[in-house]
């Protein structure tokens, strides 16, 4: 579903941010993206949601290739992805439910569908009781739940999380992480960039480790090319990548 093939990224200044990175992520996987600051974690996520394009190589996401995709096709691709950040990126003048509804409104969802769908995801992230609270009336963990609800409301194929717990204390972190696991259990792939090595090591999840733009370790490189991974239930034929091995 996500495939990087010899991808390099060079920003106008400095050393290469990514250097010959290849990996792929299947539907429904949970993957950690680790590495020291400046290793290129955020850059990988940006390449996936096409905030930027690779300098060389190819990034394929949900059947779209970074080589052939036009700017006009980007919005349609982003509707199939959910993205959350360390700083939540909520609109301060809108309530929790308005923030979530915003994602549906701006993608032209029929108004009658918006209310029920917003209520459903807010319940899923455990914030139904705070639907009408403004962001500044919510704790950091609650704000991140709103952001996750917004990312989920379009039923994405994959949730991209860039240090989603970076601003949160240990207990809140555990709660958010549990939520991401629940999301994953319902079939949504999760790609999570994190500094939290304790968290990564405590779990036997697939881990991609970057260092200075190079992919230095992929714990699941072998395992995830097996046939039973590709055929796991929930991987509908409509979303199967044309280039899946």
């Amino acid at each position: 579903m996500i495939r990087f093939t010899h991808v390099g990224k060079q920003y106008p200044k400095g050393d290469p941010a990514l250097d010959d990175v290849s990996f792929h992520v299947n539907r429904g996987e949970f993957v950690f993206l680790t590495g020291p600051s400046g290793a290129g974690k955020s850059t990988i996520l940006k390449l996936i949601y096409v905030d930027t394009r690779p300098t060389y190589g190819e990034v394929r996401v949900a059947g779209q290739s970074s080589v052939t995709m036009s700017a006009r096709q980007i919005p349609a691709l982003r509707r199939r992805l959910g993205v959350v950040f360390q700083d939540f990126q909520l609109l301060e003048d809108r309530t929790a439910e308005q923030n979530v509804a915003f994602a549906l409104e701006v993608t032209g969802t029929p108004p009658t569908q918006i209310g029920p769908r917003v209520a459903r995801v807010l319940t899923q992230v455990g914030l139904a009781a705070k639907a009408t609270a403004l962001p500044h009336e919510l704790s950091g963990g609650e704000q991140q739940r709103v952001a996750i609800a917004r990312a989920l409301v379009n039923d994405p194929l994959v949730l991209l999380a860039d240090e989603p717990t970076g601003n949160l204390d240990t207990r809140t972190t555990r709660g958010i992480f549990q939520l991401l696991r629940d999301v994953n259990a319902r079939g949504t792939a999760v790609l999570m960039a994190t500094h939290d090595l304790a968290l990564v090591k405590s779990l036997d999840f697939r881990t991609l480790e970057l260092n200075q733009g190079r992919l230095v370790y992929d714990s699941g490189a072998q395992r995830h090319t097996t046939a039973d991974e590709l055929d796991r239930p929930g991987a509908g034929p409509d979303v199967r990548d044309g280039d899946a091995p």
């Binding site: 919005p75 990126q89 701006v106 993608t107 032209g108």
Partner: peptide
């Protein structure tokens, strides 16, 4: 610009923005 960034992130078209 924050609003615009979020709109783009969730897949709003430029025309819509």
């Amino acid at each position: 610009s924050r609003e615009i960034r979020i709109m783009r992130l969730v897949g709003a078209t430029n025309q819509f923005i």
